[in-house]
Design a protein around this nucleic acid. Structure first.
Length: 288
DNA sequence: CTCATGCCCTGCTGGC
DNA sequence: TGCCAGCAGGGCATGA
């Protein structure tokens, strides 16, 4: 559920409420939330305690906080997975049912990682130079993730070429975070509709112009979603204050099976692809 | 190397 | 009423 616009909404909240703060005690309440941290829960908690957050950064769907102290400079990598939330709240507020990690802040608040489906998590990592040429260093574990369309280092021509180098279906390529990052199932369907492309078209056989239109459509739809705080279907995706976004009201195909296409009136179809749903207009988006 | 598939996980919904 | 299948799906391991 959280794709680039939702993750960026959370990042902005962290930039406002967490950057500049020092972390106090850290408690891990579910081991699965730290499964990607090599040293385990105890090591994560002890290394984080006392560190100051100096930046909140993002690439695609990955977030990270630069965390430093006198003798350690690390990245706290956060992935929201399907249902992860980063919530800021007072120390007196009660812990939600699906609390996985809680970090104290030196302003008296708590930063809570809440995640019903436990696909998300936190891990500490070293920085490496950005292999894609960005000014800021990136956590080594996400060095394989390609820049997203909102980054300065995003190279539109290179992205078009990378997409067209793939011999598989275009939707699969859109979801591949090593080609263009940030796009998930919802915005992939929305971008394909906007560009009038069927997701099963072979990427390598698409004209350069069509791929350019598709990438621009993905960028545009994610930008519009970001402007209204992202997409929410239920209470699972929220910003750091627990509030939902409003983009679900503007979705053209995702979740609209059986409803009319707003462009041509045909009935929106849903098919299963890659073990997830694909929504499309069978008239506007033809396979051939 | 590329490409395709299945699994991880919890809570809700709908059918019988 | 109760039970179970299906669904939500990002990322990664694994196999072809």
């Amino acid at each position: 559920m959280p794709e680039l616009p939702e993750v960026e909404t959370v990042r902005r909240g962290l930039a406002e409420h967490v950057v500049g703060r020092r972390l106090t005690a850290v408690t891990v309440t579910h081991p699965r939330a730290v499964r990607r941290h090599v040293g385990g829960a105890t090591d994560l908690a002890s290394r984080l305690a006392g560190k100051t957050v100096t930046a909140a950064r993002r690439r695609g769907k990955y977030l990270w906080l630069d965390v430093v102290d006198a003798d350690d400079d690390a990245a706290l990598v956060v992935h929201l997975g399907m249902s992860g939330q980063m919530l800021i709240g007072g120390r007196d507020t009660t812990d939600p049912v699906h609390l996985r990690i809680r970090a104290g802040l030196d302003d008296g608040n708590h930063l809570r990682f809440v995640d019903q489906r436990t696909f998300g998590g936190w891990h500490l990592d070293d920085h490496v130079d950005d292999p894609f040429g960005g000014v800021a260093a990136v956590p080594s574990s996400i060095a394989h993730i390609a820049p997203d369309p909102f980054e300065d280092v995003f190279d539109r021509d290179a992205a078009i070429a990378a997409v067209r180098a793939r011999g598989t279906e275009i939707k699969r390529v859109l979801l591949d975070q090593t080609i263009i990052s940030g796009i998930g199932n919802i915005y992939a369907d929305e971008a394909l509709w906007a560009a009038r492309l069927h997701g099963a078209r072979t990427a390598a056989r698409l004209p350069r112009k069509r791929v350019a239109e598709l990438i621009d459509a993905a960028t545009s739809v994610m930008g519009s979603a970001l402007a209204v705080g992202g997409t929410s279907f239920d209470a699972l995706y929220v910003n750091v204050n627990g509030q939902s976004g409003y983009f679900d009201r503007r979705l053209e195909v995702y979740g609209r099976e059986g409803e009319p296409c707003r462009r041509c009136g045909s009935t929106i179809k849903r098919v299963v692809f890659m073990n997830r749903s694909s929504h499309f207009c069978p008239v506007c988006q033809r396979k051939r």
